[in-house]
Design a protein around this nucleic acid. Sequence first.
RNA 1: GCCCGGAUGGCGGAAUCGGCAGACGCGGAGGCCUCAAAAGCCUUUACUCGAGAGGGUGUGUGGGUUCGAGUCCCACUCCGGGCACCA
Length: 822
Amino acid sequence: MSRPFDVTVIEEKWQARWLDDGTYEVDNDDPRERFYALCMYPYPSGAAHQGHVRNYVFGDLVVRYQTMLGKAVLSPYGFDSFGLPAENAAIKAGSHPRLFTEARMHELKTSVRRLGAVYDWRREVYSHDPEYIRWSQTIFLAFLEAGLAYRAEAQVNWCPGCKTVLANEQVLADGTCERSGDLVMRRLLEQWFFKITDYAEELLTSLDDLEWPERVKTMQRNWIGRSEGVEFDLPLTYDPSKALRVFTTRPDTGFGVTYAVVAPEHPMLALLTTDNERLRVEEIVARATSISEIERTSSSSEGVAAEKRGAFTGSYVTNPFTSERVPVYVADYVLGNYGTGAIMAVPGEDERDYEFAKVHGLPVVRTVQPPEGFDGDVYTGDGPHINSGFLDGLNVTEAKAKAAEYLLSHANGVAKVNYRLRDWLVSRQRFWGCPIPVVYCDDDGIVPVPNEQLPVLAPDDVTMDQTGQSPLATHEGFLYTTCPKCGKRARRETDTMDTFTDSSWYYLRFADPFTPDKAFDPAQAAKWMPVNQYIGGIEHAILHLMYARFYLKALNDVGLATGLPREPFQRLFTQGMIRLSGSKMSKSKGNLVTPEAFYGTVGADGLRLFHLFAGPPGDDLDWTDQTLDVIDGCGRFIDRFYRLWNHYDVNFHDVEDESDFAVRQAAHRTIARVTHDFERWSYNTAVAAIMELLNTVSKAARSEHGIAPSTLEESLDIMAKLLAPMTPHITAELWEERHPDQPSVHLLSWPVADPALVAEAEVTMVVQVNGKVKARVLVAPSISDDDATAAALADADIAAALNGATPTRVVARPPRLVNIIL
RNA sequence: GCCCGGAUGGCGGAAUCGGCAGACGCGGAGGCCUCAAAAGCCUUUACUCGAGAGGGUGUGUGGGUUCGAGUCCCACUCCGGGCACCA
C-alpha cells in the first residue's frame, strides 16, 4: 500500500529519539505518583513474533497512557535467559549456550524497539548475568538457612534415552520425552525442593484480594486443592498397638468401608505384607515405581490389566465404626505423597474404590440413600444415611460432623486440611541454569557456599556434547573444590535451579537494579511494589504466577523483603493467544507471521492499532485470510488521520456555529469514552470510538458548509492525544510539525473532557407500543415520567399507531424509553 | 469425569445498570475521479415479503420471569480451555 508519508523514516526517527533522550527512564526518587507496569519476563527465542507484539502493544499503551496521566511509570525490560532451548541448540551446534542466547536477546531487543515499545533500558537485567546469578544464589541460601530449601528423595521424570531428569513441562502429554521420544520413567533421586506447601493456605486466601482474572484465580485454587477431612487410625487386627493412618473427606461413609489401601510407596507396606502375598505385592510395587506416570494414571480409564494395579497384602485392619475386620490392599491408584498415603475404601460412594472393588471381588455397602430413580453403581451425592448405625437418617453434612466427632474420641482422629499442592522441585540436571550454591563434604555434609565466594559460575571451557548429561557433572575443575568449613576436598552440587526461580524475583531487581551489595534494597523496591499492572500470557496462569507469589512471601519471611507487600502483582491482565487455523501460532509449529512483514507498509503504528482493534484483548485472536485486510484498514485509518491533519480536502468557514458545536461535543464525548475504555481494558472499542470521531470530523470538514479552523484544530489535537499511546510515532511526528514550540505529545497531559460539552441538551427517547418501537422523540435528559408520557402520546406516529385505543398501562423510563401497553 | 469460559450478519466484533440489536472495521454491491488503473472519495449492505410506502422475523436450542431479555432464571446442545485416580 502506498502511504502519504514515509513510515519507516518517521518510525525510526522517533524510536531513536525516545532511546537517546531517555524519555521513558525514571528514577526511584521521582516525586510524581508511581506506576509500575510490567510485561512478563520473556525467554529470548529470537525476533519478536505476533504473540510478543500483542503483549508489548498492551504493555506499551499502559506505559504511555499512565505517563500522560502524570505518573512516574516504571517500565523495565529484561530476559529470562536461562533455559533448555539454548542448551539444546548449543548441543546441536557444539557451541556454548551463551553465544546462542545472547544472539537471540539481541534480536528480541531490536524487534521490541522497532515496535516502538519504550523501556528504561538502564534497568535491563538477564538471568545469566553473573550479578543476577549472585543474587539468585543469595536468595537460595537464605531459603536454605530458613529451612525453606531442603534436599529429599523424590520421584522424578527420568528419560532413559537422554539419561537425565526432565522437567514436567518437557514430558509430552503421551508420556514421552519431547527430545528423544522415549517413554519417560519414574525414578527416585535426591533433589532440592522449596517448601511452597508451607504457604498453601496463604497462597489460597490472599488470591481473594488480587485484581486478577477470575479464570486464573480459579486455576490456582484448583491447583492448590485444599480439602478438609479427618485423619484417623485403622488398628491392625494382629497387633492393635499398631495402626494404619488414613485421611478421608467423607468420614460419614465410614460404615461402608470394606477394605483399606496403601500406596506402593507406603512405609508400612513391608510390615503389612505377609509371606504368602509378598510376590504379588512386590510385582505391584515394581510396576508402580518403574512405569511412567502416564501409564500408571491412565490404565484405569482404559481398563488395561486392572487386576495388576493392586493386590492383597495379607493383613487386616479394624473398621472403627463397625468393629469388623477389613483387608488391606496395596494399589497404585493411591498416591504415596498425598495425605497419609493410605485410604479407607468406600466402594459404595467412591468411583475409584468401586472400580477396584469390582475387579478384586470386594463387597460394596451403600451408606447414603440415593434419590428415587438413581441407577448408577456409585452415589456421591447427598441423601439420608443408611446401614450406618448412629448416623442413619442424617444427611451428608450432619453425618460428616458426627462421624468426625466419633473418630476424634475412638480412633485418634484429628481434623485435617490437606493440599494437592506439592513442594517445588527446583533441581535440574542441566547446564544452562543458575548453579545451586552448595558443596558436599564427607565430614560436614551439605555446606552452603559462603557469600564472598558467590556467584558460583559454570565454567566456560565445557563441551556441549550429545550425551545428555550436564557437562558440569564431569568437569573436574568445577566439580572439586574445598569445603568452606573444614578445608578438605569436597564436591560441588552440579545441578542448576529451575529457571522459574529466575523469573520469581526479577521484578524486584527491576525496581532497584543499581544496588551493588544485595539483590535489591527493600526500601527502594518498596517505592514501586507491588506491580500495578502485570501483563502476560494465560499459559503462565499457574506455574510462574504461583512461584513468584511464593517467592515474595518467602523473601519477606527470611528478612530480605522487609516492608514490601507479600503479593507481587496487584493487577494482572492475561492477553489471548494468537491462533493460526485453530492452533497456537508458534515458532515450533513454523506458522509464524512475523511483524517485520508490516513495518514497511502500515508500520509499527498500523500493526499496533490492529492488535488493539482486532478484538477484546483477553480473547484469542484468529489469524485468518481476512487479517491482512484488517491490518491494511488500520493503516488506512492512520492515512485518513494524516490527511485531515494536513487539511486535505477541507472547507473552512470563519465563525464557529452550531455545526462546530456538534463536532466539539463529539470530540469531548470521545475523550470520555476512550478514557473509560482504557481503564476497563477495552481497547477495541476505544479504537472504534476514535474512528467514529474521525468520521464525524471529516464529514463536517469536507462538507460544503465546512468547519471553523478552531474547531478542526481542537478536534485534531484531541485525536492526536488519544491516539498517542496507540500509534506513538505518527502522533509524535505530526505534533512536532504543528506545535514545534511544545513538548512532545507523549509528555503532555491526557485530555480531559469538558463536562459542558459531554452533557446532552436533548436526547432521543424511544416510544414503543406493546414493546415495538413506533416513534422517536427528542426530550430533555431530565424529563419527568409524566412529561415523557405526555410527549410520547402527543407524537403523531404514536397517535396513528394507537388509532384511538386507550392504553391500559404506560411504562415511562425517561429519558430512554416510554412503552405504551394496550 | 469435574471445574471454568464462550456461542450475536458473509467475517472480526459492539451493545458498560433489563430499555433503539448489529457501533467500528473487514468483505460485498453500486457510483464519482481517471484515457485506463492504483490510490482516494461517496452511497449501500442482518434476513425476509413488497415495485414502493411499509410489514414480518432475528442474538446456539427449549422453557420461564418481566410492560420489555443478547443481557436474569431453569434445562439442554455444541465449541474452547484447565484439572484429571489428590481419597
